[in-house]
Computed example of a mutant assay.
Amino acid sequence: MSAESINRDQVENALKTIADPETGRPLSQLDQIRDVSVEGNDVDVSIALTSYSAPLWEDTRQHVTEHLQSSLPGNRKVKVDIVPLDRPAEPIGGIGLTAKSVIAVGSGKGGVGKSTVAVSLACGLQKAGCKVGLLDADVYGPSVPHLLGVTERPTATEKKLQPIDVQGLKMMSMGLLVPPGEAVVWRGPMLHGAITQFLRDTNWGDLDYLIIDMPPGTGDISLTLSQLIPLTGAVVVCTPQDVALLDAVKAIAMFNKVNIPILGVVENMSYFLCPDNGKRYDIFGSGGARRKAEELGVPFLGEVPIQIAIRERGDAGDSFGNFADQDAAPHFERICYSLTKNLAMQKASNPPLPSLSVL
């Protein structure tokens, strides 16, 4: 018995429930279904997605494929192609910054690997295909230039600082503007002015994500950011032991107090897997951040073990190299994926109101 014939309209109707991972609105409403063809048992579909959702392209392709196979009559052979869609960011905060999501990476205390996670998050999103900027707002202890191997000073063109380009990642840091070894001794108003200038007077261009490496603890810069721009949310980094978790809880409370949503928790230094005997050592305990995240009702984005190679690459300024290491890459890729997936789920659950044309 031959398979029941179908037409293009049936395919397009089945696609109406598929949401754009960036906006949460149906692809059909945003003219992102670019081509549909039906030839016998073969169904070919082309959809357009932005670089913002690049980490989720393969997920979306798989979802659309499975949805069509289950929705259409007969055993259809479905092929889904994804083409790039250019959708520039809108200016936010009244300071000329054009970024779709601004994400602060913070911690309750120093020494938990916050900057390593912030840099890795930015590198991972960039490698996935997103347009990413990285602002080192840790004015007192800027370590982002070291982690990326950058020593050059930024230049100014038409009264705008030009961020340093590191493999396509745009980066700016106070560490590039002060001589090595010199301390920055500033009070609150000067910090506010510096962060404002970094956001307003840096030529960031069109960004999908601006990742901000925050100073450790709770203080002035968090207040400054909450006043300057609408932050998408914050990622909190901690280690598994109780004393670090206590400080992480304070950081979460601080972000909540200034109305910055918590996008998730990352557990760094989760364990050490000995390369000599393959035995796992929970040096700082294990799983504490996951349990605390569940207790507080915030997402857990992933864990990063203690790995000598990660430390060596950070010291050598080769943080991008972690994504070429089969032992390190899965941990950082998981964090990037979990973050973007959670953002997409939030948009899907609360998409913008439909326009009058579709009522």
Rank of each mutant, 00 (worst) to 15 (best):
residue 33 I to E: 10
residue 132 V to Q: 02
residue 35 D to K: 13
residue 66 E to M: 13
residue 279 K to S: 11
residue 351 P to A: 11
residue 141 G to P: 02
residue 192 H to I: 12
residue 210 L to T: 01
residue 155 T to Y: 01
residue 98 T to N: 15
residue 147 L to D: 07
residue 7 N to W: 09
residue 41 N to D: 14
residue 172 M to T: 03
residue 280 R to W: 11
residue 233 G to F: 04
residue 144 V to C: 05
residue 264 G to H: 10
residue 129 G to K: 10
residue 223 L to M: 13
residue 56 L to K: 09
residue 75 N to E: 15
residue 5 S to D: 11
residue 317 G to L: 02
residue 99 A to E: 02
residue 157 T to K: 14
residue 14 A to D: 03
residue 110 G to K: 07
residue 202 T to N: 02
residue 166 V to P: 06
residue 266 V to N: 05
residue 249 V to M: 09
residue 219 G to N: 02
residue 160 K to Q: 15
residue 71 S to P: 08
residue 164 I to L: 15
residue 235 V to H: 09
residue 254 M to E: 07
residue 307 Q to F: 00
residue 270 S to W: 04
residue 115 S to L: 08
residue 11 V to S: 05
residue 74 G to T: 12
residue 302 G to T: 00
residue 128 A to Y: 09
residue 80 V to G: 01
residue 249 V to R: 15
residue 157 T to H: 05
residue 46 S to Y: 03
residue 186 W to T: 04
residue 261 P to H: 11
residue 245 L to G: 06
residue 281 Y to W: 05
residue 17 T to H: 15
residue 85 L to V: 03
residue 282 D to M: 13
residue 32 Q to D: 06
residue 169 L to P: 08
residue 148 L to P: 06
residue 179 P to Y: 12
residue 330 P to W: 03
residue 252 I to W: 04
residue 14 A to K: 01
residue 199 L to W: 07
residue 198 F to P: 01
residue 298 V to N: 05
residue 19 A to Y: 03
residue 185 V to P: 05
residue 205 G to Q: 12
residue 256 N to L: 09
residue 301 L to V: 10
residue 157 T to V: 15
residue 325 D to F: 12
residue 116 T to V: 13
residue 231 L to M: 12
residue 344 A to V: 06
residue 252 I to D: 00
residue 110 G to W: 09
residue 163 P to Y: 01
residue 133 G to H: 08
residue 179 P to I: 13
residue 75 N to S: 09
residue 314 G to T: 04
residue 180 P to I: 13
residue 81 D to F: 07
residue 87 R to G: 01
